[in-house]
Design a protein around this nucleic acid. Sequence first.
DNA 1: ATAAGGCCTAAGAG
DNA 2: ACTCTTAGGCCTT
Length: 300
Amino acid sequence: METGVISSDELVGGFDLYLTLESGQSYLWTRNDGAMYTGERTPEAWYQTVVDGTPIQVRQPTGAADGNVEWRSSTDADPLVRRLLRLEDDLEAIATDAPDDPLIREAYTTHDGMRLVADPAFGTLISFICSAQMRVGRIHGMVSTLAREYGDAYALGGEPIHAFPTPEQLATASEADLRDLSLGYRAPYVERTAEMVATGEAHPAEARDLEYEAARDSLTQFVGVGDKVADCVLLFALGFDEAVPLDTWIKTAIAEYYPDCDRGNYGDTSRAIRERLGGRYAGYAQTYLFHHLRTGAVDA
DNA sequence: ATAAGGCCTAAGAG
DNA sequence: ACTCTTAGGCCTT
C-alpha cells in the first residue's frame, strides 16, 4: 500500500473533503465507517472509491477547509486524487469571480472549500438516473447497492471496497433484478442505459467533445435521462463547469430570487440563469446555491 | 412544441 | 400508529 499527503498550502482557496463528497454531487464514494449523508462530520473516517481498477482512500484529519489531505492506495494515486477532487482548481479565483449577488456570496462564504468533483462518466450517468425523485441518502444507498451486487471488490487494508460496476457487469442485471434492489420505476431506465453503453451503441464520455448544449442533447439519448440529469453528468463528470442543472431547489431559487430568469422552458431558463450565475463557472455557483438551500443555511 | 398523468419507494410531516 | 406528501424527473400520450 502506498500513502501520501497533499499539503493544504497547495490548495488555493481551501478544500473541504466532507462538503465536497457529501453535498449530493457524487454518489460513487463510501465511507469506511459506513455512515454517509447522515450530516455528521467524521474527520478520522476514510472516504473510499475505485477508479479504473485503482482503489483509493482519502481523508482530511483536521476536518476543516485549511487541512491537509491524506490518501492511501494500491499505487501512487496522487495525480488521481488531484483529478477526482479537482484539487488544482483555483477556488479562490472562482469564488472571487462569482457574480456579486448577496445569495451567491453567502453560499460561497458559508460552505468555504467545497469543490466540484470529476467523477467517472458511466457511474455518474447511472447515479443521476437513480436520483429522480429521491433524497440524497437513498440515492447513495441505491448506488452502493449496485456496486455491492455487480461491481468488483477491492481491498485496501480492512473492509472490501466495491467498484461501481462496468457497463458490461451492470447490463447483466434484468429489470426484475433492479426492482428487487428497490430502484422502482428507474429499474428499466438503468437496465436499458447500461445495455446501450455495454453494446457500444453510445457512451456518455462521447459528449465531452461537443459544444455544451449539443452535449446536453446528446446525453438525453440514454433512457431515463432528461435535461436535468444530462446537466448533472456534464457538470460532475464531463468538465462542463457552465452546466446548471435545473432541479427543484434551483427552480425554487429562481422563483424567489431570480424570477426574470424563468423563461417557461428548460433551455431558455437554463441560458438565463447560466448568465446570471456567471457564465463559465455557473455550475460552480449552482452547486454552492443548491447546497446552501438544501441544508437550510440560507439567512432568511 | 407544450401540458397532463403515471410511476416505485421510503423517510418525514401532520 | 396511520395516512399523506414529497424527494435534485422522465416517459408517454
